[in-house]
Nucleic acid binder design. Structure first.
Lengths: 151, 151
DNA sequence: CCTTGATCTAAAGTTAGGTTTAGAAATTAC
DNA sequence: GTAATTTCTAAACCTAACTTTAGATCAAGG
């Protein structure tokens, strides 16, 4: 027997704290690609622990799984990622996070200046449609916290 | 005919930018309570425009509908809310928002200090289990971005 | 060898926050 | 007094991110 034949999915689950079902799901979403042993069971590298950890962190930062897959595609495919590789793709997270903090901060300032001031009239209100429209496939809100223009 | 018999749901939808179906859904969730006219149709007050606007803003701040219902319960039930009433319950939003900004900022700083430094070893990492565990009914992540303690 | 535990696949179920659909009844417009 | 719009309810459907279930196969221990 070799030094290592790789981790079974249960072992990886224990190492990462993820559920086995979640790990399989991530594979279906293209976030991780184990090989299979002779019996058809998944086998993982130790580097995959780090990969899944990265997925969990990125999720806490609010990235969707497709977004995370995109970020991970920045890793080298031909070798085990080095610490430097991880640092490099983490820069993208940093940017994402900065932007989210920025948006929320702007939102908070508007809350102070808008609801806080008691004006409450505002089609003009900056709180309306705060530019990062995550869910904009339908028609979003139009006039917030007040009467419509023609009223 | 009186000066006003209230807004029909379609009118409220146009005023707020929400879909009619969303307004009915919010009612089912206890966020708004119209009365019914003789024919059984929903009729709304003008103050409900503001109420729904508040719902939309609170959602953008990341509150769930149950949380928003809770915040709205702080409004007076016996009269139309005044600007001061809205300011009062908005304080809760402000606190919520401050906390979220705080969490994200802490997360960002950890990203810098942790992934950024390249240590990548860390059961000790502060990124692990960043204290606001929103979705903690199962067992969450245990060791992030690295090898397990016994490795 | 046999039993127990881990893993496999596919499909269905879950929660949040809604939307869509269908058929009926109310309202409005002409 | 029709015809066209709205609105009504209930139930089914939708996406994201998973979990659960069922029945079968694989792997490991004694």
């Amino acid at each position: 027997m070799a030094v290592s034949e790789g981790l079974a999915i249960g072992a990886l689950a224990r190492r990462t704290g993820l559920a086995v079902s979640a790990i399989r799901y991530y594979e279906a979403q293209g976030l991780i690609s184990p090989w299979r042993n002779a019996g058809g069971q998944r086998r993982y590298q130790r580097a995959d622990i780090r990969r899944l950890s990265f997925v969990m962190i990125a999720q806490q930062f609010g990235l969707t799984l497709p977004e995370i897959r995109e970020v991970l595609s920045g890793l080298p495919g031909n070798r085990t990622p080095t610490p430097q590789d991880w640092q490099d793709i983490s820069k993208g997270l940093r940017a994402h996070l900065d932007q989210r903090i920025d948006t929320l901060t702007r939102l908070r300032d508007n809350l102070d200046g808008c609801i806080g001031c008691g004006c409450l009239s505002l089609p003009k209100c900056a709180l309306y449609n705060p530019d990062d429209r995550a869910k904009s496939n339908g028609s979003g809100p139009r006039y917030l916290m007040g009467d419509s223009p023609e009223a």
